[in-house]
Design a protein around this nucleic acid. Structure first.
Lengths: 308, 308
DNA sequence: GAAAATAATGAGTTTGAATCATATTAGGCT
DNA sequence: AGCCTAATATGATTCAAACTCATTATTTTC
């Protein structure tokens, strides 16, 4: 009759509620579906009551399950808070988090993440390193930034890369564009198109670096700073573009433009947070990464959290 | 950097704070001192901070330890509450807890325990079965009581015994009584004394049942209902008595009377809660037992929790 | 200072949580 | 219907880590 319940169980229950299924909850927790099924089974046996109504999708909470999930919602933030407090005792309250961003679309999720961070670490000086920088990692060494959002984690001594998430790039076409007839686009398809991109070096454009350049294809270019402007140009048949799937979901649902996978296997991209190796253990840096992952998994469709 | 913390750790930290030492905390948790030492070590390594200031007795909390213990104080009651709520969903809110008591001194701790119970289970009808009963277990079968506090757990079919705690009986003597010169009393020492007891059958008097009767000794008797009256009579040299150590600590500190162990090894007694076997799983009955144990371990000196 | 109590440590054992591989069940589709 | 696909359940196995045991080190007490 000992209380079997551990925090692990509360995390699991909350994750199932959030994810709506064991399988997806398992992914988020970096466990197997089997593990969650066993856990749930054990809990239900212990309490002598079902906690979720199965045979329904999404899984629905029973009253008993609801009680425990409510408990989780109350308790887990308190745990996280206390652990932050302990980290502050260890490292002191102060510090700065100057964020360097090389990816234009990242501002979508960066703002809500920064809002949450500001609440949790009010003493940490929070800033975005303004202006555009070809090599944001360099800013870390120059002590002009504390964390850089980068897509290619090229191993560099003294730099640690903390995984954020991965996603697929999609090609954007006018709805009546001839290429929209294809199930997916290949490098050759871009040869005679105008490619609309952000005004950044080619190295930072996943499509160019991973698809076009290897195939020796170099289409005409047009650049603009704003995501909406890119969408606008594509819609008015001035060219094609490649953007993260999550950044254009909104427009796709409204049928502004068409989207197609790039190559048969898709064009996978990922984002990482780069920090100085020495500071990788700092609690508030790690917590910022955790916040970004939380925000993004909740708000961005079709992304996968990376790393352990 | 995963959060290592589990409820187990919070329970441990709170227990160490309450007990003041690893050894005593380990007893309460039914673990070894080694287990707690390892746990603590791991937590401190994880947080990179000491949680208790060692080399001091009682162990004192560091600021970091304090944060986590505060967390435990906030979280653990919430957990217990939620689990009670789930039990109520399973078993329904209603029910009755009519308590039969054969031990006069038990009222000392029974009242605070009942107060706590009433808070936690407001829907359960709570009562003490009034009047004195030679065989309280019989009341369970007759459905006149739901739980009986008994000292001798004689195996009876249909009855389950839930362990409460164990303690030593002490012999009480006037401060200047000749026997007070002895380090401990034996059966023979009672032969020429007047024994002051509660007015109950001999079977319920641990001293008679376990020490005097086996030795064939049957001293003069005098009975009274009230513990204070027994103390009064002992102090005024009208006789000697045997009471649980925990029930007279208060008077001993004030030097009203002297206390001595009974036999060289002490006279050990224990209390159990008897319930109908069928109802032994009922949540509120189990919780009442848990409450009694909590209250008693906190308030009664020199007792040991029994059972697992 | 010696003895007793308490905590720390390291090796060894055991438990149980997670995984892997597979069976079962539910839901969607023609 | 009936098949196919996706999701969950189950049982056996693996493996990590929590605990105990035996011992040493440290601290408290008299």
């Amino acid at each position: 009759m000992q209380s079997l319940l551990e925090l692990r169980h509360l995390k699991t229950l909350a994750a199932i509620r959030d994810a709506g299924s064991l399988t997806r909850a398992a992914e988020r927790l970096f466990l197997t579906q089997s593990a969650l099924s066993h856990q749930l089974r054990q809990l239900e046996a212990h309490y002598g009551l079902p906690l979720f109504a199965r045979k329904t999708a999404p899984l629905k909470l029973t009253p008993a399950g609801d009680k425990l999930v409510q408990l989780a919602d109350a308790v887990l933030p308190m745990i996280a808070n206390a652990e932050r407090e302990v980290a502050k005792l260890r490292e002191g309250e102060a510090g700065s988090l100057r964020i360097a961003v090389e990816c234009h679309t990242c501002f979508d999720w960066l703002m809500p993440a920064m809002d949450t961070f500001r609440e949790r670490w009010p003493e940490v000086e929070l800033d975005i390193v303004s202006g555009f920088h070809a090599d944001p990692v360099q800013l870390l060494f120059e002590d002009r930034a504390d964390l850089a959002i980068v897509s290619v984690p090229e191993a560099e001594t003294g730099i640690a890369h903390l995984p954020l998430f991965a996603y697929d790039m999609v090609a954007l076409l006018a709805r009546d564009h001839p290429l929209a007839a294809k199930a997916y686009l290949e490098a050759a398809d871009f040869a005679d198109e105008t490619l609309i991109t952000y005004p950044v070096p080619d190295d930072m454009l996943d499509l160019v670096r991973q698809v076009l350049r290897p195939a020796g294809i170099n289409p005409k270019r047009r650049t603009t700073e704003l995501t909406v402007a890119i969408l606008q140009l594509v819609a008015s048949r001035r060219g094609v573009a490649a953007l993260p799937g999550w950044s254009v979901q909104h427009y796709l649902e409204r049928d502004y433009v068409a989207a197609r996978p790039i190559t048969a296997t898709g064009l996978r991209a990922e984002l990482n947070a780069a920090v100085l190796q020495d500071r990788a253990g700092t609690a508030y840096l790690q917590d910022f990464v955790a916040i970004v992952r939380e925000v993004c998994v909740a708000e961005l469709p079709g992304i996968q959290l990376t790393g352990a």
